[in-house]
């Protein structure tokens, strides 16, 4: 297989993840509706989670959870091989990051509710207009 082909096969899912990330990022910075911005932020973050998890995966690997005792009994009997485990650390980091993400989302949505009560709108340009008129 050619070098380019290898590169494409080896990296294409990172590129798709980047595409997803950038779609989310675009929604955050281009859209004027506050809820829409938070939706964009969510897309952006979920895609970053996927980036992290992609790097932990090993081809033919399995979940880093050990099988129970009977497996090891079989292992000795049938001399089968130990499974290869995908890397557990990205999972750990992303579990933390998901929690941070939902915390941010909750706070942002609470702010949006209050902004709607104070301004009667959740459109960025209308809020700006009200602030300038005052």
């Amino acid at each position: 297989m050619s070098h380019e082909m290898n590169t494409v096969l080896g990296l294409y899912n990172y590129w798709i993840v980047i595409f997803l990330m950038m779609t989310g990022f675009y929604v955050v910075i281009a859209k004027g509706n506050l809820v829409k911005k938070i939706i964009g932020l969510n897309l952006f973050q979920i895609s970053v989670f996927l980036l992290y998890l992609s790097m932990g995966k090993i081809n033919g690997g399995t979940t880093p959870i050990y099988p129970d005792k009977s497996f090891f009994a079989d292992l000795q009997d049938q001399s089968s091989t130990m499974p290869v485990y995908s890397h557990p650390l990205p999972s750990v980091l992303i579990l933390t990051a998901i929690v941070v993400g939902i915390a941010t989302t909750a706070l942002a949505l609470a702010l949006i509710v209050r902004i709607h009560e104070a301004y009667g709108t959740i459109e960025e340009d209308e809020i700006l207009l009200q602030d300038q008129e005052a």
């Binding site: 969510n42 932990g56 690997g61 485990y85 990205p90």
Partner: peptide, 26 residues
């Protein structure tokens, strides 16, 4: 990607709690 813990959490948080909060906000 062999991350069932994360998948479980993402399903509970992303498809559950955060959707619920956003609908409440709407």
């Amino acid at each position: 990607l062999d991350a069932p813990d994360v998948a479980f959490t993402e399903a509970a948080v992303g498809a559950g709690i955060s959707t619920f909060l956003m609908l409440a906000t709407l």
